[in-house]
């Protein structure tokens, strides 16, 4: 059973940024390209995100996730490049296939946007302990129940992975081959899915009991084991982030 989180415990500047600022950052990354739908803005976002991931020393860790997202986006790029409704100007040939400019750039824009959003979320998830984020929000008045749901969302992937590992151990120890070539692995993967979902549901129910018998829904005022962390340059970063948004709006209005 592995730790139920994607969080990477490192000691970098990004790790010491207030979780709320990381949330605002995600907001900006989503909203600014909507206000200013320009390629350079998207590119700037990509560069910014890459730099931040590198500073946080989690770039490598985020690669598999980008790989997965890119794989999906590539299909979008191909389909739109070939078949987008407004396709008129030929752009390039790839073997017998003709890609059109309109569709290609449309898809490229989507790709960059999605990549940016995913990257911004990766910065949050990989550099913030889930409990720190949730505690910050609960301290600011968020209901602990919503906080718990939020935290569970963070944990879904690692939790599924660990359930998968457990069931896979149960299966291979009773003779089901899970190691070997791609075909064997795929064959082993399918019978995993049903039990994983089912066992996860059962676990969720058990967890709910575990929480209740420890007073989770009691009406008392909650306190926290962890002290409020000393986050760095919180006001300054927040101010800068809002400034970027304001600048984007002004640019849009003036232009």
């Amino acid at each position: 059973m592995k730790a139920l989180t994607l969080y990477e415990d490192r000691n970098t500047f990004i790790h010491h940024v207030h979780p709320i600022n990381k949330l605002i950052y995600i907001f900006i990354i989503i909203v600014v390209p909507l206000i200013l739908p320009l390629f350079p803005v998207l590119i700037a976002g990509i560069i910014m995100n890459t730099v931040l991931l590198l500073i946080a020393n989690v770039f490598k860790k985020s690669l598999p996730i980008f790989g997965f997202v890119l794989l999906i986006l590539l299909t979008v790029l191909i389909i739109q490049g070939l078949f987008h409704a407004e396709n008129a100007t030929p752009l390039f040939h790839l073997g017998p296939l003709l890609f059109y400019k309109e569709g290609f750039f449309y898809a490229l824009q989507i790709t960059l946007r999605v990549l940016n959003i995913v990257a911004a979320f990766m910065i949050l998830v990989l550099t913030t302990k889930p409990s720190d984020l949730v505690e910050t929000l609960v301290r600011k008045g968020l209901s602990p129940k919503i906080g718990y749901v939020l935290q569970s969302v963070f944990q879904i992937i690692p939790q599924m992975l660990s359930t998968m590992e457990t069931i896979s151990d149960a299966q291979r120890s009773r003779g089901m081959e899970t190691e070997g070539n791609l075909f064997v692995r795929i064959k082993a993967f399918l019978p995993l899915l049903g039990p994983v979902v089912l066992n996860s549901l059962i676990q969720t129910r058990e967890r709910a009991m575990a929480l209740e018998v420890r007073g989770f829904s009691s009406l008392r005022h909650k306190t926290f084991l962890n002290e409020v962390k000393n986050y760095r340059y919180t006001t300054f970063i927040q101010f800068t982030l809002w400034l970027v948004l304001l600048a984007a709006i002004i640019w849009r209005v003036v232009l």
Partner: peptide
């Protein structure tokens, strides 16, 4: 089935109930 699954260490896990009781940090 008693593990809350929302804490990353044994120490924090034990604290879970105490946080819900509203104890001070020192007491915890």
């Amino acid at each position: 089935t008693q593990v809350t699954g929302s804490k990353l260490t044994v120490y924090e896990e034990i604290a879970f109930g105490l946080e819900n009781m509203g104890l001070t940090r020192i007491e915890m």
